[in-house]
Computed example of a mutant assay.
Amino acid sequence: MSLTLCYFPLKGAAEISRLIFAYTGEKYEDKRITSEEWKAGEKAKSPTGGQPMILLEGGEVYSQSMAIARYLANKFDLAGKSGEEKLHADMVVDAIKSDMAQSLMKAYFEKDEERKTAFAGEAKEKINTMLELLEKNCVKGDGTFLASGTSWADLMFYNFMTDVVPLANASMSAGVTLDATPKLKAIHDKVQENPNIKKWIEARPQTQF
């Protein structure tokens, strides 16, 4: 029995886990649950009442997006080679998820145009500052955040730049680019050029979010 990843028919919070599966080539079931199915009974299966969820080989079910992605990173040797490397990767992932992605999403989903403009300006400033810090302090390898090679931190950064930033740039002129951060661009491009990632991006269902 293979692992089963459950989420709505979106990229969203499950895409980092899908990218880990894609990069490693590990087999899994990509189960996409409609809102109707979720309300009709799937929600009751979640230990914390939300998605994504992962069903393990033994039948156990776990939820929470970062817990699942971290579990997969450890299981498939993408978490780091030492305790310190794992800490470094987690630090980068948290910066991307908590500091950058959430600030953009806050602005993206704001309905009031005046508040949306203000939030977008705040998000752009926060993201540019964080990109500078990541570029300066956090790239330890050749096109990777870790000295030992590719990790889930690289996949998380690729996910952010590929699936989150284009939405923000198109809808609220966020203007987020990697023009001033060549080390980060090298990380993004290295993931993008991976054959398994290329195959997944071409094959995955096309959704806005």
Rank of each mutant, 00 (worst) to 15 (best):
L3P: 02
L3N: 00
C6L: 15
Y7P: 08
F8C: 05
F8T: 06
L10H: 07
K11Q: 09
K11S: 08
K11I: 00
G12M: 02
S17C: 02
R18C: 08
R18H: 03
F21T: 07
F21N: 09
A22Q: 05
Y23T: 04
T24S: 14
T24H: 10
E26F: 02
E26H: 13
K27T: 13
E29A: 14
D30A: 10
T34V: 09
S35L: 09
S35Y: 08
E36K: 14
E36F: 11
E37N: 11
E37W: 06
E37Q: 15
G41Y: 09
K43N: 08
K43D: 03
K43R: 13
S46N: 06
S46F: 05
T48A: 07
G49F: 03
G50T: 11
Q51A: 12
P52Y: 08
I54K: 11
I54M: 14
L55N: 10
L56G: 07
L56V: 00
G58C: 07
G59P: 09
G59S: 08
Y62V: 03
S63K: 00
S65D: 04
I68N: 06
R70P: 02
N74P: 01
D77V: 09
G80A: 12
K81R: 13
S82P: 07
E85S: 06
H88E: 12
H88P: 04
V92P: 04
V92G: 05
V93T: 06
V93K: 01
D94P: 03
D94T: 02
K97G: 00
S98D: 13
D99W: 00
Q102P: 00
M105V: 12
M105R: 10
K106P: 00
A107D: 07
E110R: 10
K111I: 02
D112Y: 10
E113P: 14
E114V: 15
E114K: 15
K116I: 09
K116G: 11
T117I: 13
T117W: 04
A118E: 15
A120R: 04
A120H: 01
A123S: 08
K124T: 14
E125I: 03
K126N: 03
K126H: 03
L131V: 07
L134W: 01
K136T: 14
K140I: 02
G141F: 06
D142A: 12
D142M: 06
D142E: 15
G143A: 09
L146C: 13
T150Q: 08
T150E: 04
W152L: 01
L155Q: 04
N159K: 07
T162E: 15
A168Q: 01
S171A: 14
S171V: 01
S171K: 14
S171D: 13
S171Q: 13
M172H: 06
S173E: 15
S173N: 14
A174Y: 00
T177I: 10
T177H: 09
L178Y: 10
D179V: 14
A180I: 00
K183P: 07
L184R: 09
L184C: 07
K185I: 01
A186T: 10
I187Y: 00
I187V: 15
H188L: 04
V191K: 04
Q192Y: 11
E193C: 02
N194I: 08
P195C: 11
N196M: 09
K198R: 13
K199P: 00
W200T: 01
W200C: 01
W200S: 00
E202N: 04
E202M: 08
E202P: 05
P205W: 03
Q206I: 13
Q208H: 05
